[in-house]
């Protein structure tokens, strides 16, 4: 198990993400990395830049950070905090590599943020090959049962996928549905199943090809208000 990255702007639900990370990280030696992204301030001179780049966390952010550290310390995990000014796609890729990231957990407030630094960070993360767990606002730290949402052909068989996921997360796939057609007629069935079988995370696979459809595919699972685990599918 490699390290877990949590991009955040230190809103209260970061703590949930940290707890989820602790639940997921079964083995030892896993580090949890909080990544605070911010815009680089525009300034004329190097010294002005350095001056304005000082860590200026607000009181609430500091308390969230402290809480997270408490939670991590109690469970015996090391928590690192990293502030990144101005991010780009290649930079993020190198960062993920340097941190030996194996899983990305995105808190709900971060995913729903409209700030350009946050949205572009989420976008670049989705281009990587890592599994991404996007938490919902009502998420509990412990995720157990998953519903696999297939979207079309060329899909991994469910046993393969289960194998891959268990390397990262203790999640059991209990149901699967194909949404390649007739999304609307399935919606009701899906919500029924989610209620009936206590499903708390949806799984869907993604590919890095930048096809136009990808956005819609991702939007469908998110519309159920559950956490969504997005797994990179390397289909050649």
């Amino acid at each position: 198990m490699k390290n877990i990255l949590i991009p955040t702007h230190l809103s209260p639900d970061t703590e949930i993400a940290v707890r989820t990370a602790i639940c997921s990280a079964s083995g030892t030696g896993t580090e949890i990395m909080l990544l605070l992204t911010a815009d680089a301030p525009t300034s004329e001179s190097a010294s002005a830049l350095l001056r304005s780049m000082r860590h200026e966390l607000t009181a609430s952010q500091l308390s969230v950070l402290d809480d997270c550290r408490d939670v991590a310390r109690k469970s015996g995990f090391s928590l690192k905090f990293h502030t990144q000014y101005s991010l780009s796609g290649p930079l993020l890729r190198n960062l993920l590599q340097a941190m030996e990231t194996g899983l990305v957990i995105i808190p709900a407030s971060y995913a729903n943020s409209t700030q350009s630094t946050h949205t572009s960070c989420v976008k670049w993360l989705s281009l990587s090959k890592l599994p991404i767990l996007q938490l919902s606002e009502t998420a509990t730290p412990e995720l157990r049962k998953a519903l696999l949402i297939e979207n079309g052909l060329g899909q991994l068989p469910v046993h393969e996928l289960q194998l891959q996921i268990n390397r990262k997360l203790p999640i059991q796939i209990v149901s699967q549905a194909n949404i390649s057609s007739e999304e609307q007629s399935l919606r009701q069935l899906l919500s029924e199943t989610i209620d009936l079988r206590d499903i708390d995370v949806l799984i869907h696979t993604r590919r890095t090809e930048k096809t136009g459809r990808r956005k819609n595919d991702a939007a469908f699972p998110e519309s159920f208000g559950l956490s969504v685990l997005s797994v990179y599918e390397n289909a050649i």
């Binding site: 194996g102 090959k129 060329g154 899909q155 991994l156 068989p157 046993h159 393969e160 996928l161 891959q164 390397r167 990262k168 696979t205 797994v231 990179y232 599918e233 390397n234 289909a235 050649i236």
Partner: peptide, 12 residues
């Protein structure tokens, strides 16, 4: 019979 796919590696 399981459906076969050409390449079954999710990059971990």
């Amino acid at each position: 019979t399981r459906k076969q796919i050409r390449n079954s590696n999710v990059v971990s």
